[in-house]
């Protein structure tokens, strides 16, 4: 009887592979020696406190900042593998508009506040060559319904939306091109608790329905437990622990991870 750890049971390569990712801000370490694999349909949570480097990791992945070192490889929908750090800007920007999505903590950073909700959702489609007004509007309506924004709001400006609605609109704007990978930075940050809950339910549902892969940065362990399959715990720019979400939260090994978990208040 052989005992094995087959390295893959379904797809045969990771969607995203990160090795030795590092970024310094002068003498300050943003993140150092970060590595992980992300497989299709998987959600990876990156948790830590302020200054842990979790947002730096996300910014390096999205290209918002240039990493100093490391390798980030991504498997595109057509099966080809690209090294993100060597990609030219045109290709990177195209990737961000098609196969990737980025959901910012503050919806204002990810939306056009001075055009209607429908235009916000339809923009990526038009950027990719959609030239039929009726059909673009139809897809926008579709997606607004999926993020539980009422049809009647399609022509309203995002400024008139509540924080939670703006966040849902940002999600719709990103998901309309059916990306394979979504990067999220504190998606529920700053929202009221009940609004957070609704948003989390929505995200869980969308991740399941669309088979999305996601990297979610959060300081909130409850969000991580709800959304992520796996966790990275970061501190001082380093990954101190990684593993299945429930294992890291229920049986943390590293002293800092234990401290983090035990610090969470239970209502």
């Amino acid at each position: 009887m052989t005992i094995e750890h087959p390295s893959a049971t379904v797809a045969d390569r990771p969607l995203l592979s990160v090795r030795g990712l590092g970024k310094r801000y002068g003498a300050q370490i943003g993140c150092r020696d970060v590595g992980f694999d992300l497989w299709p349909g998987e959600v990876l949570g990156v948790v830590g406190e302020s200054g842990s480097g979790k947002t730096t990791v996300l910014d390096c992945l999205s290209g918002r900042v240039a990493a100093d070192g490391g390798q980030v490889t991504y498997t595109k929908a057509d099966g080809s593998v690209v090294d993100l750090r060597r990609l030219d800007e045109a290709a990177r920007r195209r990737l961000l508009r098609t196969e990737w999505g980025v959901v910012h903590q503050h919806a204002r950073e990810g939306l056009r506040m001075n055009v209607s909700a429908g235009a916000n959702v339809g923009e990526r489609l038009m950027a990719l060559g959609a030239r039929h007004y009726g059909r673009v509007r139809g897809r926008a309506l579709d997606w607004l319904a999926r993020v539980e924004i009422g049809e009647s709001r399609i022509d309203d400006l995002p400024e008139t939306f509540s924080g939670g609605m703006q966040q849902r609109l940002q999600i719709a704007r990103n998901l309309v091109t059916e990306p394979r990978l979504v990067l999220m930075d504190e998606p529920t940050g700053g929202l009221d608790v009940s609004v957070q809950a609704r948003l989390l339910d929505l995200l869980r549902g969308l991740v399941e329905d669309l088979g999305l892969s996601a990297v979610i940065v959060t300081h909130d362990l409850a969000v991580a437990r709800l959304l992520a399959h796996r966790l990275l715990v970061m501190r001082g720019g380093l990954v101190v622990e990684s593993g299945l979400t429930d294992q890291v939260l229920d049986d943390p090994q590293h002293p800092y991870a234990q401290l983090l978990v035990s610090s969470v208040l239970q209502p």
Binding site: E4, H5, S7, T9, V10, R230
Partner: peptide
């Protein structure tokens, strides 16, 4: 159809 050792298994396998 195989035997898997959960101890030390990669997270992806454990999820499966």
């Amino acid at each position: 159809e195989r035997v898997v050792d959960m101890v030390g298994a990669p997270p992806r396998l454990m999820l499966d």
